Simulated assay, not measured.
Amino acid sequence: MKRLQAAPDTVGPVGPYSQAVISGHLVFTAGQIPARGSLDQQLDTFEDEVRQTLRNLEAILIEAGSDFDHVIKVNGYLTDPAQLEPFNRVYTEILGHAPPARTTVCVSLWGVTMEIDCVAELIDSESRKHK
């Protein structure tokens, strides 16, 4: 098992956890939030927050040896049911070409509007040669 503490250009963990854990051929990410540079930087719209959260998630997957094409399962945590439509719109732009299994729930979060985590397969070395 391998633990990834912090991917470049992401806000590192704000608690005692790893950003990702690699076990066997799978990558399990911690939940990512709409942070860019620091937790204090605010984004203009909820759709911008979804895009930033997915960028953070993608950076972690790449650092771990995977990417969005290898995502198996996504969990989305929203703080308001009205967020579902804009969430789906951005999600479809980025992951809509071959959508993984997904669960999306409305919850109370600590000071953020949303969080996303996922499970992905590692890209095998043969696949990397052809990209």
Rank of each mutant, 00 (worst) to 15 (best):
N88S: 14
P34W: 05
R89P: 01
I33P: 06
G15C: 02
I33S: 09
A35R: 07
R51I: 15
T79N: 10
I72R: 15
L78R: 02
A20V: 15
L84K: 07
V11W: 07
L84H: 00
V11Y: 13
A59G: 05
A101H: 03
Y17A: 14
K73D: 10
A30V: 06
S66G: 14
M114N: 02
R51F: 14
L57G: 05
L84D: 08
A6N: 04
M114R: 07
R89V: 00
W110T: 12
P100K: 02
A59K: 15
A120D: 03
R89F: 03
L122R: 06
K129E: 08
L4S: 01
E63H: 01
D67G: 09
D48A: 13
Y77M: 07
T45K: 08
E85C: 04
D69A: 11
V14N: 02
L54R: 02
K73R: 08
D80F: 00
Q5V: 13
S127P: 07
K131D: 02
V21H: 10
T113R: 15
A64Y: 08
Q32S: 05
A7M: 15
K131R: 03
E58S: 12
K131Y: 06
W110F: 15
M1V: 09
V119I: 09
W110M: 14
M1L: 05
G37E: 12
I123L: 15
H130Q: 15
A120V: 01
A6Q: 02
D9F: 10
N56A: 11
D44N: 11
L61C: 01
A6F: 00
A64S: 12
S38W: 00
I94E: 07
R36L: 14
V27L: 10
Q52C: 12
F68C: 05
H97T: 06
V11G: 12
G65M: 11
S108N: 02
A101K: 06
V107R: 15
